[in-house]
Design a binder for these strands. Structure first.
Lengths: 169, 169
DNA sequence: AGAACTGTACCGTCCAGCCGGTATAGTAAC
DNA sequence: GTTACTATACCGGCTGGACGGTACAGTTCT
């Protein structure tokens, strides 16, 4: 859909140039659309950012759901590594775009709470599961600030050890 | 010093209202200073943000160094919990202020790399140490988005388990 | 015929940075 | 001891430019 292309353009702009450069004209130009065309789909800038946030959450939820793992923690872990290794580090970028507007950030906050609570009651070692999910979050942070910090071998080793944390008593 | 008060005002503004509200006049007003007075100390907005970033990094380094622990990982862990429980969650706020300017973010990136590498060669289980530090980062993330997510008991349990991760072979 | 645009022109607002001016304090000459 | 000078700290108004949003007439696709 055309809306997705517009959201992609906005995301790319955020990731490459940062929040101050996320202007309606810049997004339109990047998507190969006139400003009027952009405003046809997203009638305000707020709507555009809201669209980005919602898609971000929905996409990650979908990615977690598509992992064939025996627990939510395992699926979340696997999804994190898939997303991070894909190189599409939209998370941070998108969030900076919404910074300052608590209303826009709310859906993300809710998603965050969900990601760190879901399936916790069936976990045999909830604290270990929490640590694993926190480490996932930390991985986002580090990778976004410095995409080359971890090598492929590092990722594999980390994934292995985090999985082991979930398995052991 | 007066510069510190100005940086405090800027940080508070970022934390409470978000990056778009970080204007020179707003910072000046909050600090009880005219715009001209603010610009006397920080001649551009960029200098102001740079000042915030540098102080952020320096403060945390100092906090880590002041912890009396037997390894950098332990000190980093302890410092993280102290900082987070203090409620002064400047980290995220400050970073959003610098979003968009890679030059301003560079010092933070370097600090991040340092925080995740320092003392790693003397660690008996480097991967465990890495996981602990990643979990610290994740804790920042979660706590900033939702300050009330973890209770005091949670923090203690998490700290205990993360310490245990560093101890066991 | 209608949906999905394009292109242009325009308005009000906001903000960074600049600049001329002011107050205070130190200091040094005479 | 008062005059002259200098540096520091700060005031507040101004401006030029950019941005979000509106309006609307025309065009292409289906």
């Amino acid at each position: 859909m055309r809306k997705d292309e517009l959201l992609n353009a906005a995301e790319e702009l955020l990731a490459e140039q940062g929040a101050p450069c996320l202007t309606l004209s810049a997004v339109a130009e990047r998507a190969g659309v006139s400003k009027g065309g952009l405003l046809y789909h997203f009638s305000t800038k707020e709507a555009l950012v809201k669209g980005m946030i919602e898609r971000l959450v929905a996409d990650f939820d979908e990615l977690v759901a598509s992992q064939q793992e025996s627990s939510y923690s395992r699926a979340y872990l696997a999804a994190t590594f898939v997303a991070i290794r894909s190189g599409r580090l939209r998370r941070w970028a998108v969030v900076t775009g919404a910074a300052g507007d608590p209303g826009l950030l709310a859906p993300l906050r809710e998603a965050m709470a969900r990601w760190h609570r879901e399936g916790m009651e069936t976990e045999s070692d909830p604290t270990a599961a929490q640590i694993v999910r926190l480490a996932c979050e930390g991985l986002w942070d580090v990778t976004t600030h410095d995409p080359g910090f971890y090598g492929e071998a590092h990722y594999e080793e980390l994934h292995r050890r985090l999985l082991a944390l979930l398995a052991s008593p």
